[in-house]
Write a protein that binds this DNA or RNA. Structure first.
Length: 276
DNA sequence: AAGCGAACCTGGCTGC
DNA sequence: TGCAGCCAGGTTCGCT
């Protein structure tokens, strides 16, 4: 997408999780995408007028990229309604002859368009935590953030104001690899003086490892979710506990069975025998 | 004030 | 076959 110009935009409904900003399609048309980026789970497209297009996929959002007909007549797609599928909410017609289509059945995702300078004070970004793949994540930072917290470790790791970008799958997988119970109080990873325990150091490294493996495998692609070319992400095949209730624990030598429990309304998959 | 459940919305799967 | 009930990758809101 970076480098392409946005020829036109079809906004096919007034809102996703939130209303689209005023004149959304009109403000995008004619702009060139200078760069693509990401912060936490937000996808960012920097435009040549200084605005940033903010996109979030929610639970069920996805993008697909298709040929948009003859490059010399980029409007041709508008007459091919057959390419539109159920829950296609936004279509970006690009100058490179392709269209990027945002599809989201549950509409928990959203888009916004703001000046770049306002991004850091945007209510959604103001209190977002550290990037788990950056150098900021280590045992000391985890311990500092978790000190005094009685919330379960599972909930603390899902808290986007502490670490930004961990979802339910990766938290379950990281806790299993680290041998830590999701029910353990978060504060138990900090010593009384706030310094990290060895467990905190290990967990920080494992979080990074899980994310790097998942990215290398093309993501997790549950159910109908695909990569933008329609193929499936492979990481789902390497889940050790997520959605594996009743299966034997895959830890070497462990004879436990994967259990499911609900914490803060979310499913947690774990092994009570090797996660303490 | 932290921590938890409910809500947002649609669709797929399971079991009766 | 039909239909009710449960579950889903995320985040915010409001109550205790």
């Amino acid at each position: 997408m970076a480098g392409a110009a946005i020829v036109s935009v079809e906004q096919r409904r007034p809102n996703l999780r939130f209303p689209f900003p005023p004149r959304f399609a009109g403000r995008l048309a004619g702009r060139t995408i200078v760069a693509m980026g990401r912060r936490a789970k937000y996808l960012l497209a920097d435009l040549d007028n200084g605005d940033v297009l903010i996109m979030h996929l929610g639970m069920s959002g996805s993008f697909r990229v298709i040929d948009d007909g003859n490059e010399k007549t980029p409007g041709a797609f508008h007459h091919e309604r057959s390419k539109i599928e159920a829950h296609d909410h936004v279509v970006l017609h690009l100058s490179n002859g392709r269209a990027v289509i945002y599809n989201d059945p549950r509409r928990f995702g959203f888009m916004d368009l703001v000046p770049r300078a306002e991004l850091s004070v945007h209510p959604l970004f103001a209190k977002i935590g550290i990037e788990p793949l950056g150098n900021a994540l280590n045992g000391a930072v985890l311990a500092q953030a978790f000190a005094g917290k009685k919330a379960p470790l599972k909930a603390a790791l899902l808290d986007q104001t502490i670490i930004a970008g961990l979802g339910n799958i990766y938290v379950c997988e990281a806790l299993h690899r680290a041998g830590l119970s999701p029910k353990r109080e978060a504060r138990t990873l900090a010593r009384k003086d706030g310094r990290p325990t060895p467990r905190a150091e290990a967990l920080a490294g494992i979080i990074r490892e899980v994310l790097e493996e998942a990215i290398a495998a093309g993501g997790s692609s549950l159910r109908d979710h695909r990569l933008t070319d329609g193929s499936l992400g492979y990481f789902q095949h390497t889940f050790r506990v997520y959605d594996r209730e009743g299966e034997p624990c895959p830890s070497p030598g462990c004879t436990g069975i994967v259990k499911r429990l609900v914490q803060s309304g979310r499913s947690t998959f774990y092994c009570s025998k090797c996660q303490k």
